[in-house]
Design a protein around this nucleic acid. Sequence first.
RNA 1: CCAGGGGUGGCGGAGUGGCCAAUCGCAAUAGACUGUAAAUCUAUCGGGCUUGCCCUACGGGGGUUCGAAUCCCUCCCCCUGGA
Length: 286
Amino acid sequence: MFIKKKIFVITGQTATGKTAKALSLVDELNGELINADSRQVYKKLDIVTGKDLNLLSNVKIWLYDIVDPKDQFSSFDYVKRATSCIDEIISRGKTPILVGGSYFYLKHLLYGYDVQVEPNEKLRTELNEVSIDDLQKTLQNENPRVFEKLNQSDRYNPHRLIRKIEITRGENVKRVKASVSGIYDIYNVKMMGFKFKDNKTLESTITDRVKKRVNNGALNEVKTLLDEGYSADHPGLQTIGYQQIIIHMHNVIDFDEMLAQWISKEIQYAKRQLTFMKKDANIFWV
RNA sequence: CCAGGGGUGGCGGAGUGGCCAAUCGCAAUAGACUGUAAAUCUAUCGGGCUUGCCCUACGGGGGUUCGAAUCCCUCCCCCUGGA
């Protein structure tokens, strides 16, 4: 019988001060920070994604700036990277503190997943042109059992349908069913969730935060990225803020409209985060 | 003042006699979430209940009609051109 090592997870809605909280725990817990934000893993995406570079000027945070914005990165990649960070930190006798609001990534890391079929970019781009109707028919033909189990939302969700088709075909090539178990049972995981007390404060806080990012040079950041050859369809830029600024720079919408849309999308995102995380009974809400 | 165009649900914007409580987009509310996840998708979205019906609704008022957001009269407001 050995004592499980401790891991801290600080998650919750965007703009609730997770990073500050995590920082305050570093000394107390003899900890090291690991990013759990699906956008901040990207290099060069700093201002719009709200990397707390000033807060973190003296403290190392793992998994910031590890991929180029034009490269694909997935929850699978995240789990791999985060797992090795955790091992490494623990081997040095310290406590990992995961910080970030990408619950999808955390969920996979903590609780695992059971299918391992690699993404097939060629198939994805091909299927991206296919209508929902035909995607449904394709899956229904190739894997009726899986199709029947989908709820209505998923049946109309191109990404999900494409992934299911991808898995079906991948499994036909080689039988891969090796499930990956999460780390939740291996460690003594303490999860802390931050959320707004009501939608009013959520809205005003996010509005302020977005405006601050604009004042901090969000537009310049995007301009630089575009000058360097990045574009709206690169994975890293499929992100709230970048999408709106880019169409503004292409003169599709004016500045005020861009700001309003950015704020609105950010608010919607925060609400979606909570809907998702609410279901996790292990999160202790503060 | 004259001529022309227009006022539709929180916003944008269809509809031009019955199929209209009113297409659609946005916002809003609830939700889904196993390798794109700050992605993507679903449901609801005037009010009431016995869920089929009732009520209130397309700038205000009046009228025509079995029946009007849709036609006529009038008033108010907005835009464009002319004086």
